[in-house]
Write a protein that binds this DNA or RNA. Structure first.
Lengths: 158, 158
DNA sequence: CTGATAATGGAAATCATTTTCATTAAGGAG
DNA sequence: CTCCTTAATGAAAATGATTTCCATTATCAG
């Protein structure tokens, strides 16, 4: 029964229980946040945001939880080149549709794009299949990102 | 005329002079190393290696030079998820042909693959063109990598 | 309800990378 | 070739993200 911070039968509870992990308040708070925010959050962003509704949270726990979620495949971890990792939910009701990133190397702005994902899918599948076979790899995911300068940063560099 | 560490008319000298940068011993040593090594070197790897033939080199200079080379587009910088950046020459006589990376999330091993690059090129070009137009981005480069478990790490995780 | 232990959080430690600043050395001018 | 300006360097210190340690707390199976 829901109580306190709203312990409910979330979609990910089974994933936790089946894997033998406990469902704790910090973990729920972090997953809730990731589920309702569609930004590229850093560990500290998450810490600060969760801290508002659950002040007892520790930054260490945020890092540990994120590592766990990444290992479980529930969360993607990205590097956009600004020295801190970014996290995004990979599945669940609140998840954005499959997308990749366009990163401005000038100001760090990141745009999610969904164009060409269909054409890409075929290529990706073929590549995955072939690489799996040839190199005996079990491929879990892929990352594609384009780097360049956004409109504003193009002007500045002139 | 070549002297000391072999100051020669390397292919990249013009790039430096045209941009107003000086051609120095540390820079030459770093570029020489990158040119003859086809591994995914970290800043410290480069420092240690260059240190063997030019012991006066400082780690700071390695970082600074790499940043410069990345900005000039002579070097690619990658993140394979192990907390340190990796560098690879992007052009020049000793450069590997266009490739992407297959990263084992278990042991960190990285495989360069060149399969499907042709098919990929078309997709990438189309995507670049479209994204440039739609988001007003000047795209400089792209990164594609597949993440998974190598043969050995698949066994261990069972 | 209770006990075993997984999970937590604060503080300290780590570790890659950056900054500071006094010294050195490219390389154009003379 | 020598001098001079200043870009480049390197050692040490600073920074900042992430991890480790460890004593305490809270989950949840029985």
């Amino acid at each position: 029964m829901p109580r306190g911070f709203g312990v409910g039968p979330h979609w990910w509870c089974n994933r936790f229980q089946d894997a033998g992990f406990r469902i704790t308040v910090p973990r729920q708070a972090i997953l809730d946040l990731l589920n309702r925010t569609h930004e590229h959050l850093s560990a500290e962003d998450i810490y600060l945001e969760v801290h508002k509704i659950y002040p007892a949270i520790g930054l260490t726990t945020v890092y540990r939880t994120l590592e766990l979620l990444v290992n479980m495949g529930l969360v993607f971890k990205f590097d956009f080149g600004d020295g801190r990792a970014r996290y995004e939910l990979s599945q669940g009701p609140g998840t954005l549709k499959h997308h990749h990133h366009l990163v401005c190397t000038g100001c760090g702005r990141v745009i999610d794009y969904t164009e060409f994902i269909e054409q890409e899918k075929e290529l990706v599948h073929r590549t995955e299949r072939e690489l799996s076979r040839k190199y005996n790899f079990k491929i879990d995911s892929h990352q594609i990102q384009f780097l360049g300068l956004c409109h504003n940063c193009q002007k500045e560099n002139k």
